[in-house]
Design a protein around this nucleic acid. Structure first.
Length: 251
DNA sequence: ATGCCTGTACATTACAGA
């Protein structure tokens, strides 16, 4: 199975690139984040014309998550807290696997209310996953907005006091892994090659100033069947790119 | 210290993103 996740930073702005990418890479499952469309405006035909089932959750022009898959999506869940939350999580059963597409809150700054919200959201996700993982194999993929270790950022010193690298965020991620999930991108020999996000500014991509924040977490049984892991940096180098690269994992 | 760039809507400026 070819599994992928991609924060597209607006599906409306990225529509043509997503269509090209689907045809070139032919994933069996694709998790999307930051679609930035309401459900009523979601371009289902973009996926259906290319042979995919698709489920989306978007309540405004911000956030928004989706899962597209060759096989049907069953037992959909929207969100991890309650109906009033932002559209940051969608889950579905696909061919016997429970798939989560997640867009973890950014946090903005240490001490910002949004930072507390990020930690609370991660704890709510953990509570949900602790229940789910006992039932079936899990794949939890998306933009976690956390760099798991100092090796996952271009310059740790430059990020002192910033979000994405703080201990509380990393502990919240570790609590997810402690449920029995494996970070599929953690074991690369050249960690720079696993960066998944580069700022649009300052030529950050060209200069290698990135972070690994888009993750694929797999149940142990599934992680043992992983046969390849790849960050598609070519797509970050395309014209009009998202600031995130797709991540592709084969099982 | 700030903006750099990109996309969004209460749009020609402010904001969020990471």
């Amino acid at each position: 199975m070819r599994f992928a996740t991609w924060n597209v930073n607006s599906l409306r702005a990225r529509r043509d690139l997503v269509a090209l990418w689907l045809n070139e890479h032919q994933p069996d499952v694709l998790c999307l984040q930051e679609t930035k469309v309401k459900d009523a405006d979601f371009p289902e035909e973009l996926f259906e014309e290319n042979g995919y089932h698709v489920a989306h959750w978007g309540v405004s022009s911000w956030n928004g998550v989706a899962i597209a898959a060759r096989q049907p999506l069953d037992n959909l869940i929207l969100g991890v807290v309650d109906d009033s939350e932002e559209a940051r999580c969608i889950a579905a059963d696909i061919d016997g696997i429970r798939v989560f597409s997640v867009y973890v809150p950014n946090g903005r700054a240490l001490g910002d209310p949004h930072y507390s919200y990020k930690l609370e959201w991660l704890e709510a996700l953990r509570a949900r996953l602790s229940d789910e993982i006992q039932r079936r194999p899990l794949l939890v993929a998306g933009d976690f907005n956390i760099a798991p270790t100092d090796d996952d950022v271009y310059d740790r010193a430059a990020l002192e006091g910033a979000t994405h690298v703080s201990e509380p965020e990393r502990l919240a991620l570790q609590r997810l892994l402690d449920l029995g999930l494996v970070d599929c991108g953690a074991s690369a020999e050249d960690t720079d090659s696993n960066f998944t996000w580069w700022d649009y500014r300052q030529g950050a991509f060209r200069r290698g100033m990135g972070m690994r924040i888009d993750l694929v977490l797999a149940s142990r049984s599934l992680s043992g069947e992983m046969c390849s892991f790849q960050v598609d940096r070519l797509t970050r180098a395309a014209p009009k790119p998202s600031d995130h690269a797709p991540v592709i994992v084969e099982f």
